[in-house]
Design a protein around this nucleic acid. Structure first.
Length: 908
RNA sequence: GGGCGAGUGGCGGAAUGGUAUACGCGGUAGUCUCAAAAACUACUGGUCGCAAGGCCAUGUGGGUUCGACUCCCACCUUGCCCACCA
């Protein structure tokens, strides 16, 4: 066997040993736990706490957390007291469903998931403040979730109402509006129409409609504030747009249509208009419309089957033929029973029934029929619409199907310039459906067939229309929101019991504060019942209570609250989970909130983010806090995919970080995740990419270890110094903007450059270069940089070059007690971030691109002093042989010179 | 139906008015080795050419500009979000 040259022995890179060692040291010394009371430069770096799914952490979670952690570590090195807490959003249907699947009690399952998830989170090497961690299912936490509910109740923001709600037959609970999503139903037959169904966000089961009494939070009170405040927030426009769309403000008019009554006695009057009826406030139909400009085109009215007038009708308050009444009843019953799924599935084919009643269009006193149809939703506007079949495609379809009058009241304006023979749409003045096909026109134009409004333009003149209506007392301005109140009752076990007690005498009473938390009882039958009642309803010891007010016998609310309530305020609790006497410490909240940066998935654009904003606003109104918005800055990261496909359990392509961490170490995986694409755009995960990153880290390990690092600032070339400064600048700016992929690329370039320099010029790495490199990489690869910093850089500082020889790695014993004691100060993560010196970035020479007719032909190098001397540059450029070829014998028409960048000769 | 984005080598992606393809993956050749792996080194958009060098390429078609991946218009493809919302 050959004897190798007695070279410097490079220790083997053993990521797992290094990582475990430093994770222990960091945690033992709480280096990532700022003092929440005395910190001088607080920076709240929040990431969305995970649902601890029992399968464990997904690489997508790690992607999100790493991106947030890199930012936190960077800010810490910038001198901020960074608070980066973590916890588990472990209550809720998601966790409970998993417990059902594996047949374990949710409480036990939570322990298992918690252990596993925290183990994984530790292994990723994030700078979490472990002291502050919290779990939403911890009674110490949900005590305050219940307290929060009570505050809302006392403020009139929590109320009960019976309402048609979405019910998931699989999860056996009601769902909030936001938790019902639409899905394409893939039909087995080759049908042309793709059917859409409404399904549960959690399990994908089609939802049903049920009429139940439930707890709601009055988020609609905040609709306008939630909307207008968006302008103040440093959030990506995409998320703001999603919220705006969800809040869905519509400005329009509320218009009353009198109902023509035919009292039983009133047989003589064939039409039934009587003065008394017309003035009868109880018998009018109010509609909300954004197209009041088309009011003259309203040829019928449509009521939702749930509309109160429909109920009165069925109670025979109005006289209609009995046979028709039966028919009506059948239709309404059917519509009410129809699941949301069926209603939407019918999609294009609208059904309805004539009510037998007529109304009056208030602008022209025309008698128009009143129909009932389930395409009109009770939940939006007034539950009744004026139908304008000429200018609304849904009304048009309906009118066509039932042969109702279609009227055109908007004329297409002259087509703007597009065609020379400016077309003016020819429109039939009043067209009946039974004659020619009349088309529906939903665009803008000029009002016609509308008396005094004729000639007004829409949408420009809609303001005039509403003023006219208001003056005549026929309608008024109205704003309607798509946002509905937040339904928070869940007929499930695994959540915080809603802390309310019902007393027959005193009605609903909140549990007094000293009665909190209302503990979730340990029960055997915790599985959902499907009866519309929570499993807690059968636990007598739980249900029976005394009324807090009259001390009489009373019953507890047995539903639990929605998981989204748990997560709507957790960022307050993080600051104060050592405090038992209140939900949060007001001083600490003032110091740390609003959150400086919140990083998470865009899928929470409407749910979690909106709820959190609402709760924060409510707390502000209640005087607990001094700010209205919880998250000053929200940054949505992209979606991680695997080799071109979405990761999903069904595809079996879900990547777990564990195996990669075991094989390459967390540093490699972190760097790879941050490198594979722009952070806000997501990226594609390839195994070979991970290997490439591992190579980079190993090369760096070798680079730092293999050259004896000079303790002295021996002179390095200007170019080398410039490269270092350039890299510091690039990496700093990129991290600031969360452009992690290009920050890493810049470091790789620097490595490639240094490696070539050192090899070909037989030079040494300076301490400054090595130290700078490690610091720049530290946010991405916290362990290996810490290891090298201590074993190479600090040992150089401590003494002679001899000490620079590598020491054994592997266990914490290799780090001296001294080091461990003051690790809080001497950790690389506590060091100041490298600064670049602009003076080293200055170039004395500049490369100018020489173009002929916009094509690059050559480059010339000029001194900076020559920057402004165009003649000189022109002369130099013309001397180039490559340029000569293209300009010789040609007339130069024009010369464009852009200072310090390009010179372009334009020839004939 | 409405809203928002994206389209660049074999692949992930850089470059936001001035040298397109940085960085990484993959590939080819070489060094080391009995050999392989690893590691290291060089090359790597297409095309014509011995070479020098030329021409062509950022979804398609137009436009603006001395100059366009970048700005404008139309179209095609694709992703995400919302949707009987009156």
């Amino acid at each position: 066997m050959k004897i190798k040259k007695p070279e410097l022995k490079i220790p083997q890179y053993q990521p797992n040993k290094i990582e475990e060692k430093w994770q222990k040291i960091w945690e033992r010394n709480a280096i990532y736990s700022p003092n929440l009371d005395t910190a001088k430069k607080p920076f709240y770096n929040l990431m969305m706490f995970p649902y601890p799914s029992a399968e464990g952490m997904h690489v997508g979670n790690m992607y999100a957390f790493t991106g947030a952690d890199v930012y936190g570590r960077f800010m810490r090195m910038q001198g901020f007291d960074v608070f980066e807490p973590i916890g588990l959003d472990g209550f809720g249907i998601h966790s409970e469903n998993y417990a059902i699947k594996v047949g374990r009690h949710p409480k036990e399952q939570a322990k298992v998931s918690e252990w596993n998830f925290y183990r994984q989170l530790h292994a990723t090497g994030n700078g979490f403040d472990w002291i502050r961690r919290l779990e939403t299912y911890d009674p110490k936490y949900y005590k305050w979730t219940q307290w929060l509910f009570i505050q809302l109740f006392k403020a009139g923001l929590a109320y009960r109402k019976k309402a048609p709600v979405s019910f998931c037959p699989s999860c056996k609970t009601v769902l909030a509006d936001e938790q019902v999503i639409k899905k394409l139903k893939t039909t087995t037959q080759k049908s042309q129409l793709d059917e859409e169904i409404a399904v549960c966000e959690r399990c994908g089961t089609g939802v049903e409609k049920r009429e139940l009494e439930q707890w709601f939070l009055k988020i609609t009170n905040y609709a306008n504030r939630l909307l207008t405040n968006l302008a103040k927030l440093d959030w990506s426009e995409k998320v703001k747009i999603a919220q705006r769309q969800w809040i869905g403000k519509s400005e329009g008019a509320r218009i009353s249509f009198p109902v023509i009554l035919r009292e039983r006695s009133d047989r003589e009057d064939p039409i039934g208009i009587s003065r008394s009826a017309r003035n009868d406030n109880q018998h009018k139909i109010e509609v909300f419309t954004t197209r009041h400009d088309t009011l003259y085109g309203a040829t019928f009215l449509v009521l939702s089957p749930e509309h109160p007038i429909v109920a009165s009708l069925l109670n025979s308050k109005f006289k209609i033929q009995n046979s028709k009444l039966d028919e009506l009843k059948r239709y309404v019953d059917k519509a009410k029973k129809k699941t949301e799924q069926e209603r939407i599935a019918e999609g294009k084919e609208k059904t309805g029934i004539f009510s037998g009643l007529y109304g009056i269009n208030p602008v022209n006193n025309e008698k128009i029929p009143i129909w009932i149809a389930d395409y009109v939703l009770m939940g939006y506007g007034t539950g009744a619409i004026m139908a304008v079949p000429g200018h609304d495609s849904r009304d048009y379809e309906f009118a066509k199907h039932y042969k109702l009058t279609i009227k055109n009241v908007i004329a297409r304006s002259e087509t703007t310039k597009q065609s020379q023979s400016a077309k003016i749409a020819t429109l039939p003045s009043v067209a009946r459906n039974d004659k020619k096909e009349v088309e529906v026109y939903t665009g803008e134009g000029t009002i016609v067939n509308s008396n005094k409004w004729n000639g007004w333009k829409t949408p420009q003149d809609v303001g005039k229309v509403i003023t006219w209506l208001e003056n005549k007392g026929l309608g008024e301005r109205e704003v309607t929101y798509h946002l509905r109140d937040w339904l928070i009752s869940r007929q499930r076990y695994w959540g915080p019991p809603i802390p309310m007690i019902y007393c027959k005498r005193c009605k609903w009473q909140p549990v007094p504060e000293d009665g909190l938390p209302v503990l979730l009882p340990d029960v055997k039958n915790w599985k959902p019942t499907g009866t519309g009642k929570s499993p807690l309803a059968s636990v007598e010891s739980f249900v029976n209570a005394t009324c807090p007010n009259c001390k009489g016998k009373a019953k507890r609310e047995t539903d639990v609250s929605d998981t989204f309530l748990d997560s709507a305020w957790y960022f307050f609790r993080y600051t104060s989970n050592d405090i038992e006497s209140s939900a949060f410490d007001i001083k600490r909240v003032k110091k740390w909130l609003p959150v400086a940066i919140y990083i998470g998935g865009a899928e929470h654009s409407v749910l979690h983010l909106l709820y959190s904003r609402f709760i924060t606003m409510a707390l502000y109104d209640l005087g607990f806090i001094s700010f209205e918005e919880p998250f000053s800055r929200f940054y949505a990261h992209g979606l991680l995919i695997k080799e071109g496909a979405k990761m999903s359990k069904s595809k079996g392509n879900v990547v777990t970080p564990d195996e990669y961490i075991k094989k390459y170490g967390a540093d490699t995986l972190r760097c790879y995740l941050m490198f594979l694409g722009p952070f806000d755009g997501g990226g594609d995960f390839y195994d070979t990419g991970v290997e490439g990153m591992h190579r980079f880290i190993k090369r760096l390990w070798r680079l730092i270890n293999q050259f004896p690092i000079s303790n002295f600032q021996f002179p390095i070339s200007d170019e080398r110094r410039k490269f270092m400064n350039k890299t510091i600048k690039k990496v700093t700016e990129d991290i600031e903007a969360l452009r992690y992929n290009t920050a890493i690329a810049a470091m790789m370039e620097w490595y490639n450059y240094l490696n070539l320099e050192l090899r070909t010029k037989n030079s040494e790495l300076t301490k400054e270069e090595a130290e700078t490199f490690l610091k720049l990489l530290a946010p991405f690869a916290p362990h290996v940089t810490e290891e090298l910093y201590h074993n190479v850089i600090l040992s150089v500082s401590e003494g002679s070059l001899a000490n620079a020889s590598p020491v054994s790695v592997g266990d914490s014993s290799s780090v001296s007690r001294q080091t461990q004691n003051n690790i809080k100060d001497i950790s690389i993560h506590a060091q100041p971030w490298p600064k670049f010196d602009p003076k080293f970035l200055e170039e004395s020479k500049t490369t100018i691109v020489v173009q002929v007719n916009g094509k690059v032909r050559d480059t010339i190098i000029i001194q900076n002093s020559e920057f402004r001397i165009q003649n000189l540059i022109e002369k130099k450029a013309k001397q180039s042989e490559r340029v000569k070829k293209y300009i010789e014998g040609k007339l130069i028409k024009k010369v464009v010179y852009v200072e310090g960048k390009v010179i372009n000769f334009v020839t004939e």
